[in-house]
């Protein structure tokens, strides 16, 4: 994580796993508060941003798979780290398996990506 700060100090920006970048103009500021904020941002942006990379890539992978395999199920919403679908009951078992697999294989990290799937009659029940 300290690498992230020193990278920012050298290059002026930080990057995520998939090369998204964020510039931190205050990283070498003499003002303690501004610099401190930039330093914390240098640490958390690669994490938040990589999480964004992951969920975005999962959306593309899952949406493509649904089309390719002619499923009727549809991706409806993305909220934080969650994808919400509507699914006919005959596809439910398939979808649970497919979505879990694609989402957990989105990017190969040194730790496993774990996906919880739930279903219900409303979004509230699918929790």
């Amino acid at each position: 994580m300290d690498d992230s700060i020193s990278h920012a100090k050298d290059e002026g920006y930080v990057t995520t796993l998939l090369k998204r970048r964020r510039y931190l103009p205050d990283i070498n500021n003499r003002n303690f508060n501004l610099r401190g904020f930039a330093e914390r941002t240098a640490m958390n942006t690669p994490i938040q941003g990589t999480a964004a990379d992951i969920i975005k890539k999962a959306m593309v992978d899952v949406a493509n798979a649904l089309t390719e395999r002619n499923y009727e199920s549809r991706l409806l919403l993305q909220v934080h780290d969650e994808l919400i679908f509507e699914v006919p009951k005959n596809e439910l078992a398939d979808l649970e398996q497919l979505v879990t697999q694609l989402m957990s294989e989105t990017l190969a990290l040194d730790v496993e990506l774990v996906v919880d799937v739930e279903h219900g009659n409303t979004w509230y029940e699918a929790k």
């Binding site: 994580m1 992230s4 796993l17 690669p46 994490i47 938040q48 990589t50 999480a51 992951i54 969920i55 199920s73 409806l76 919403l77 780290d81 969650e82 994808l83 919400i84 679908f85 509507e86 699914v87 006919p88 009951k89 439910l92 979808l95 649970e96 979505v99 879990t100 989402m103 990290l109 040194d110 730790v111 496993e112 990506l113 774990v114 996906v115 919880d116 799937v117 739930e118 279903h119 219900g120 009659n121 409303t122 979004w123 509230y124 029940e125 699918a126 929790k127």
Partner: peptide, 28 residues
């Protein structure tokens, strides 16, 4: 509760990454 499937007898499926940020932190 107000978000429901558009067709009768369909269900809502929610797939949630568990602790994704901490996992990314561990990786990075």
């Amino acid at each position: 509760k107000v978000f429901v499937p558009s067709k009768k007898d369909w269900v809502i499926l929610a797939a949630d990454y568990s602790q994704i940020e901490l996992r990314v932190l561990a990786h990075m």
